[in-house]
């Protein structure tokens, strides 16, 4: 009998949550424009999100590039198009796999860490304590992280692009008997600046999204250890889903460009 109330309740809750995230996102995107800006917190976020993620992103990239080279070779051999391997691999890495895989790794690594750290600060009253010390917790905890992730991810993806293509190069040259010089020349002639730049724009959007999710769910977590645990889980899942769906939207926009 209360089925309408139930549907209405769920719908309202959905809109309420979307609205909250929207306001949080707007604050996160604009809050660095007005002072104060906490440079120290920003530098430490940049170090943790960017620099410390290099090993995991590099490993992801090199193995993906290597496996991709084998798959492209095997597939394109069916219609005698093996010579296009460097071009296909280059486009796949810089336009698609570099940004998406690096962002997914960072969702697992940084988004979860943000949700857990900020969530623990929330439930142990550290965030309340910060506001009694006349420092806006949003500006100290959220703004630096969102900005750092938005800047760090494109840089990480640029690194991942290079390492991924190098992974493909290693396999092509040492396992598939390509000439190294031809591989590099083909790639260089074929890839455009826009291929790379569109990937980096994607990366900036993904970085913003994954930091936003980590911060939002951490900041609004409640209810002790269990609350922090579920905030972390939801942050990672929503980051991944948002990254993948935003990737489709951005790709469809870029291919028409």
């Amino acid at each position: 009998m209360n089925i309408f109330a139930a549907i209405g309740g769920v719908t309202l809750a959905l809109f309420r949550e979307t609205g909250r995230i929207g306001i949080f996102a707007l604050n996160g995107a604009l809050s660095w424009l007005t002072g104060p800006f906490y440079w120290r917190a920003f530098a430490s976020a940049l170090l943790r999100i960017g620099f410390m993620s290099l090993p995991v992103v590099g490993l992801t990239a090199i193995f993906t590039g290597a496996a991709l080279a084998l798959n492209i070779y095997d597939g394109s051999a069916r219609f005698n198009a093996e010579t296009f391997l460097p071009q296909i691999l280059g486009v796949s890495i810089v336009r698609e796999l570099g940004p998406v895989l690096a962002a997914l790794m960072l969702a697992g690594r940084s988004s979860s860490a943000m949700a857990a750290e900020i969530g623990t600060m929330r439930v142990t009253e550290q965030i309340d304590a910060m506001s009694t010390l006349a420092v806006d917790p949003f500006k100290y905890l959220i703004t630096p992280r969102i900005l750092a992730a938005t800047i760090a991810l494109p840089l990480l993806v640029l690194t991942a692009d290079i390492i991924g293509i190098y992974g493909g190069f290693l396999v092509s040259v040492y396992a598939l008997d390509f000439s190294g010089a031809v591989y590099i020349r083909n790639l260089d002639e074929f890839l455009t600046n826009f291929d790379v730049i569109s990937g980096l724009i994607k990366a900036a959007v993904f970085g913003f999204l994954l930091a936003l999710m980590g911060c939002y769910y951490g900041y609004s977590s409640a209810g002790g250890a269990q609350g922090v645990g579920s905030a972390t889980r939801i942050a990672v899942v929503t980051s991944a889903v948002l990254i993948l769906s935003a990737n489709y939207l951005l790709t469809s926009f870029f291919v028409d460009f």
């Binding site: 600060m121 009253e125 550290q126 309340d128 304590a129 910060m130 009694t132 010390l133 006349a134 420092v135």
Partner: peptide, 29 residues
Amino acid sequence: TDQVGMLFQGAALFDSLTVWENVAFRLIY
């Protein structure tokens, strides 16, 4: 609220900072 100070039940110290940075947090930031 700038003129207030509060001692929290669990002390609520910032665990990412050292003790002196905790005490000096407001003065610095």
